[in-house]
Design a protein around this nucleic acid. Structure first.
Length: 141
DNA sequence: GCCAACGTTGGC
DNA sequence: GCCAACGTTGGC
């Protein structure tokens, strides 16, 4: 089981919109970055991820699950781009802000802190557990 | 709204 | 294969 972080500008695709999709899930399309794409190729069904709102809220707001393996991105004809499908699992009761993450020494190695531009990134087990704790989830899923 | 950081493109 | 120019992202 691996852990990930998906970043989105809430004005283009928000956690609310993701939740409305329910268990059907949603294609994580529009990624045009090789590193992010390669991360998605590594994902397996059932892998979990954080849903992060960039720009305005800069917070981890939800937990998602990978529900389809990487496949061609339907929003482009370019065969290079692929994406997975994800579905909302649960809210993070107390959204964890970027400021909170930066203030926590345990999370100083996170890609989110060191390379804020990567839109799909891996998260370590320790980081996952810590952010779940900070977010008010008693038990990390 | 500004600017720094990063990735991509294209000329040579 | 290198590097300058450009476009985009995202934090502040």
């Amino acid at each position: 089981m691996a852990y990930w972080l998906f970043k989105s500008e809430p004005t283009s695709w928000s956690w609310e919109m993701q939740k409305k999709k329910g268990d059907a899930g949603q294609e994580w399309d529009g990624v045009r970055n090789y590193q992010a794409r390669n991360n998605m190729r590594e994902m397996k069904i059932g892998d979990l991820g954080f849903f992060y709102h960039s720009v305005k809220e800069t917070s981890v707001v939800g937990i998602v699950e990978v529900c389809a393996l990487a496949h061609h991105d339907s929003t482009t004809d370019d065969p290079r781009w692929e994406c997975v499908d994800i579905r909302a699992v649960k809210d993070v009761p107390n959204p964890v802000t970027l400021a909170d993450i930066k203030a926590n020494p345990k999370l100083s190695e996170m890609i989110l802190v060191n390379n804020s531009r990567l839109s799909v990134q891996p998260v370590s087990k320790a980081e996952w557990t810590e952010i779940c704790r900070m977010g008010g989830l008693d038990k990390a899923p």
